[in-house]
Every structure is written in C-alpha cells, then in structure tokens.
Measured scan of single mutants.
Amino acid sequence: IRVTEDENDEPIEIPSEDDGTVLLSTVTAQFPGACGLRYRNPVSQCMRGVRLVEGILHAPDAGWGNLVYVVN
C-alpha cells in the first residue's frame, strides 16, 4: 500500500501481509512514531481512520485499493 507522512508528500510503498493486513510495526519501521493510518474517503472526501486491532491494520471494506494512506 502507498503511505505518506502528509497528503502532499511522495508516498512510500509498504508491503501487506499474505492475508491483506498491514502490520503497524511495518509502518513504524518507515515512519517512527506512527500509531495508525488514515485515508481520504473517495465518496465523502472526509478523512477516515483505518481499523487497528492488536498491532494489525485491517483494509477498508473495499480493500486497500489505489488510495494513499497518511500516518497518524
């Protein structure tokens, strides 16, 4: 998935696990201090948080898609 520190920055590609999840530790390896991800909902244009359970980030209902995710 494509992740950036700010919406206007160049994104970095972060690998997902075989089950489609992303480990928070993978994100923090590239973005120290990150505690989660958010993205701009293409329909509402509002920022939406990615579900985080026990250090594992779960894809939105429509999958990770071609969105750019921003670190929290």
Rank of each mutant, 00 (worst) to 15 (best):
N72Y: 11
T4S: 10
V53P: 00
L57S: 03
P42W: 04
G20Q: 03
I14A: 04
L52D: 12
E54N: 10
G36V: 01
T28C: 15
P60M: 05
R51T: 15
G20A: 04
N8L: 11
N8Q: 09
D61K: 10
C35Q: 13
E10I: 06
V27K: 03
G49K: 14
V3N: 00
C35Y: 08
D9L: 14
A62I: 15
M47V: 12
P32M: 04
C46G: 13
R48H: 15
V70A: 05
V68L: 14
V70P: 03
P32Y: 03
A29M: 11
T28Q: 14
W64S: 04
Y69G: 04
R48S: 15
V3F: 03
G20I: 02
S25D: 10
P42G: 09
S16C: 11
V71F: 06
L52W: 01
Y69W: 02
R40T: 09
N72K: 10
N41W: 05
V43G: 15
E13H: 13
N8A: 13
V27A: 01
V3C: 09
E10M: 10
A29K: 14
P42M: 02
D9Q: 13
Y39H: 04
V53T: 14
C46S: 10
A62M: 11
Y39W: 09
R38S: 14
R40V: 08
H58C: 06
V27Y: 00
Q45C: 05
G33R: 11
R51Q: 11
F31C: 05
Y39T: 05
W64G: 02
G20C: 04
C46L: 12
D9M: 13
T28N: 07
G49P: 14
P15I: 09
C35E: 13
A34P: 01
D61V: 09
G49N: 15
L57I: 02
S16K: 14
V53I: 11
Y69T: 06
F31H: 03
G33Y: 06
V53W: 09
N72A: 10
N8V: 07
V27T: 00
L24E: 01
D61M: 10
P11H: 07
R51C: 09
E17H: 01
T4H: 08
Y39G: 00
V3H: 00
R2D: 00
R51G: 06
R51M: 12
Q30I: 09
W64I: 03
P32E: 06
H58E: 09
V50K: 01
R40C: 09
V53Y: 09
T26Q: 12
P15G: 08
I1G: 00
F31M: 05
S25Y: 04
R2V: 04
Q30C: 14
V43A: 10
G63F: 12
P11D: 04
T28F: 07
H58G: 07
E13F: 10
A34W: 00
S25H: 06
G36F: 01
I14K: 00
S25W: 01
R38Q: 15
G65V: 01
D18Q: 14
V71L: 04
P60G: 01
L67R: 12
L23Y: 06
R2E: 03
Q30Y: 15
V53N: 10
L67W: 11
S16P: 06
H58A: 03
N41D: 15
V50G: 00
V50C: 09
P15E: 09
L57R: 02
I56D: 05
D61G: 12
G36L: 01
D19N: 03
A62L: 09
G63R: 04
V68G: 03
P11E: 06
Q45I: 04
P42N: 09
E13A: 08
V68Q: 07
S44H: 07
R38T: 15
I12F: 07
A29G: 10
C35W: 06
L23A: 12
A59W: 02
D18T: 15
L57F: 09
T4C: 13
L24V: 04
L57P: 02
V22P: 01
P15K: 15
R40P: 05
C46P: 05
Y39A: 03
N41C: 13
P11W: 10
C46W: 05
D61H: 07
L52M: 14
G65R: 08
C35P: 02
G20M: 01
Q45W: 06
E5L: 12
P60T: 01
G36D: 00
L24Q: 04
P60C: 04
Q45E: 11
T21I: 04
Y69I: 00
R40A: 07
A62K: 09
E10L: 11
N66Y: 03
Q45K: 14
V22A: 06
I14M: 06
D18H: 11
I56S: 09
R40L: 12
E13D: 15
A59P: 14
G49C: 15
L57E: 01
P42S: 09
G36T: 02
A34R: 03
A34L: 02
D61I: 08
N8G: 13
V53R: 09
